[in-house]
Design a protein around this nucleic acid. Structure first.
Lengths: 356, 356
DNA sequence: GGAGGGCTTGCACACGTGTGCAATTTGGTT
DNA sequence: AACCAAATTGCACACGTGTGCAAGCCCTCC
């Protein structure tokens, strides 16, 4: 009660009250065997009664350990991040680390300020969990001279580690699922061209089809940017293809949401006329119409793994620089067998000419 | 370059190199007028060249100011939070404060650990941005003895302040908009019964109708929990009402999403047969089918205001304990005029008996 | 030329905690 | 009872930074 605004109690205050030196108090509270168990117990009780809370700054000053991890995020608005952060924080907390938040919203000036803040608080390590880090951001982070773990991103650089979902395997999962449903004419609406994840998913798509002896019509691959617009444009483009695909694999769920919308707009029923599969399993995938079948990234696990990796690095262990976690299929309602005779229920019906 | 792993340079290292005392360096870097401008400039250059970064812990130890604000969140998975946090962080950064993340996922044990972490790092203030704080959480936070600002929540307690969207006004906005479209039979699918925001929205709903001389059928008010299921159940319940409503005001967007889905499931077209309006304007409101008309909370502003409030409190200013920010209407496509003759296009048609 | 005053600078202490080493106490053994 | 080892405690310093006070310097004015 009303101790408010008065100085917090320090180890010395306890020492005075207990009639011992502050060293003894320090040792007692830290559980050192160098102090008489009875005194230790007495001191601990007293500390609790006086409401003692150790001062992290003072402690870190002498131990040169801050127990702080910087968590770098471009924007929290990314619906993808929540679970990742949960995983990170859980492991961090278990290991006695605290999280420092640094978001930049892709503003270079703020990135700089954020990095400075991380430096001043002497973070022991950094976890970068964001879809895109600014070009210059990473070099600045490297200058901190602490281990860095990237999530869903890869850079070739010493002292930089990464944890990622296995995009290639996820794409294989998606495409082979569609093939198992009977599809052979499968399109891909791509993500940001530069994104590594996009290249991997693309490759997984191509190679899965190839393994089944299918060469996708080049018109079935349309570029995008990972946002809903891309899904809308993508569907429009695909409708103009001479041979209409019966299923679409989308770079991510946001793209798939746009695709769903566009499909509905032109009167295509999902999944009866067209199957759509996404990637990520964001929160809202369960609430689209129809609920979106998608490839789930093990977000929570990725967060935990990244933080565990960082902990190992902090302990000086050697760690493999890049880890991949498998994705899994989440079946909902946006995929089904191809339409009868594989003729999509829309205008121009000249479709079949290239089929086996 | 390779300074990695060696001790970071301190003020004393600079002093030695510059041939002055560390006091002079300290003053030079802090811009004190007590040091010769030429020396100051020389020292600043040297510091930059040596890659000096002040040690926040050491500084805060002597100044007794940490420049750290605790950001308490139950879960990042709340799609509502992103913008709020952005506002908070922006103002914090401008004012030279850092954010410490404390999420609890509603686990009492973790709440305790989180509060302890906040206490040990001597946060100067706390912002609580979460839909629900655990019962015991707040008392623990209060024990920190620092100012607390709640976002979208209110408690009657000294030293606790709050910023909230004006739920009452938002509800008035929603319901009067529906009435302007021609609706008179308007339902409310409520949120968590205990939530203050729910009571306020409910009240706004009731009083707006009352002001127009309308007494809503008690069957048009169904309880919920703020989650999509509530919307689904709500629609089912409303379909059983003797007089069918033509519009539904939902406690929040998640509820509205459930309502949209249920409406579609029973073959009701939105907005032709039924208008649905939500509350919050979460990211996905723009991507539902049809895109959801909703009441937007000024999330970004709320974040900024909360942080500004905290700053003022930290400067010892007196501040009004509770602030309300107005909501605004976001028109999309889920609302329209009531159906012809106000007869919903569904089964049992015995509807009209109580109409004027 | 000396006194006084304004600039600069350094000394020394403080913040709260941890720890090596020496000092003191305790307990056991002869 | 004396002695030794072990257990316990305190002293003093360290971490990096900020700051009151005194000391030193230089310039100006009488």
């Amino acid at each position: 009660m009303g101790r408010r605004a008065s100085r917090r109690v320090s180890i010395k205050d306890i020492a005075r009250r207990a009639g011992v030196s502050h060293s003894t108090v320090s040792r007692a509270l830290r559980g050192s065997p160098l102090v008489n168990p009875r005194t230790a117990e007495r001191i601990r009780r007293l500390a609790a009664r006086m409401g003692y809370v150790p001062n992290a700054a003072a402690r870190s000053l002498v131990t040169t350990r801050t127990s702080i991890i910087g968590l770098v995020i471009t924007t929290l608005a990314d619906p993808f991040l929540a679970e990742i952060v949960r995983g990170v924080e859980e492991v961090a907390l278990e290991a006695g680390y605290r999280l420092f938040l640094a978001t930049s919203n892709a503003d270079p000036e703020r990135e700089l300020a954020a990095v400075r803040a991380l430096a001043e608080s002497r973070v022991e390590g950094v976890i970068v969990a964001s879809s895109r880090v600014g070009e210059l951001y990473l070099p600045h982070l490297e200058a901190l001279g602490v281990p860095i773990v990237l999530i869903n991103q890869q850079r070739e650089a010493p002292f930089i580690y990464s944890v990622a979902a296995d995009s290639y395997q996820g794409a294989v999962l998606a495409v082979s699922y569609l093939m198992r449903l009977g599809h052979t004419r499968i399109a891909y609406i791509a993500g940001p061209p530069m994104a590594r994840s996009n290249r991997l998913r693309w490759m997984g798509y191509q190679e899965t089809l190839a393994a089944a002896g299918i060469t996708p019509d080049p018109e079935w691959i349309v570029e995008g940017n990972g946002r809903p617009e891309a899904g809308e444009w993508g569907i429009q483009r695909l409708l103009e293809a001479p041979v209409r695909p019966t299923a679409v694999f989308c770079y991510n769920d946001m793209t798939a949401i746009g695709a769903l919308r566009a499909a509905r707009a032109v009167g295509l029923r999902v999944p009866e006329d067209l199957s759509i599969i996404g990637f990520d399993d964001i929160l809202f995938a369960a609430y689209t119409e129809p609920p979106l079948t998608t490839i789930a990234q093990p977000k929570y696990e990725m967060g935990r793994t990244a933080m565990s990796m960082l902990l190992r690095l902090l302990q000086g262990e050697r760690v493999s620089p890049s880890l991949q976690l498998p994705c899994r299929l989440v079946e909902r309602a946006s995929c089904g067998p191809p339409p009868e005779g594989s003729i999509p229920m829309v205008p121009h019906l000249l479709a079949e000419r290239r089929l086996p």
